[in-house]
Amino acid sequence: MAAGSGTYIARRILLLVPLMIGLSMVVFVIIHLSPGDPALAFASEQALDPQVLAQVRENLGLDKPLPVQYGIWLSHVARFEFGTAYTFNRKPVINLIGERVLMSVQLQALALVMAVLIAIPLGIISAKRQYSLLDNLATGGAFLGLALPDFWLALMLQLLLAVQLGWLPASTSGPGTAGLEKLSYFIMPAVVLAVPIIAIFIRFMRSSMLEVNKQDYVTTARAKGLSERAVTYRHILKNAIVPMVTVIGIQLPRLVSGAVIVETVFAWPGLGWLGYQAILQRDYPVILALSLLTGAFILVMNVVVDIVYALLDPRIRFD
């Protein structure tokens, strides 16, 4: 840890404030620039009486100028009040999110753990046995994995494992099930989320290992007679795995994005599916809250990743 690390961390955290405000502005502007009328979405159940619509607009504050709407919205958001949804039985947005967040987090955590456990060993072996059959299979597989559309992979898995073979349940999260049976519902969606990440991790881990292998200190370690095992694990791996922290961090937005398609295909009751439904129904409070919360989460995670990386790698300078 260098001397300036304290100020570096403090500065990164302080920088979050303007980023968060910027995020809220961008999200708000994108949604309010669009031509659709949220009052229509809200009033869909009532008759399309212009008087009713005007009343709805006034009640929702949609008649006020945009900057005023933004100010009102921000002051609520700062107190974690996201209002009630226009649809979804007019439930409070925070409840809608609260009910689903765990389902999404569990699925994504499983996918991430799966990706790390599969990809890092494969990447290490690939680098150690460069151009071997296993290396070619791993790098070739990773290349194919990158080109695989997640929604198609999801459909093909459903077709093969659920429809044809009947090994796994086709969709939903299996409400009312427990234990192994519950887990069987997680497998397909988690695999679909994990495949592109595994591909990226294998490629990165492999090239990171090969890069470190070229360093002088590795040659030194070999020259002084250390066993290849010790060189690999104590000298190469320790240094090669540090940049993986950043790569894992970069995957978070991808995971959250992937969740929209995966949860929709598998009818998974998480935030991705909620977001998709909200978008189709123009449910502005839900869309706003979801984009803002996930955006803020990713901004915070970026800072955490940077700090962890800086602490792990003493070569990083704090300037």
């Binding site: 980023l19 994005s257 984009s291």
Partner: peptide
């Protein structure tokens, strides 16, 4: 970049 791309 912080707003999940596909969601945006």
């Amino acid at each position: 970049l912080a707003i999940p791309g596909f969601f945006l």
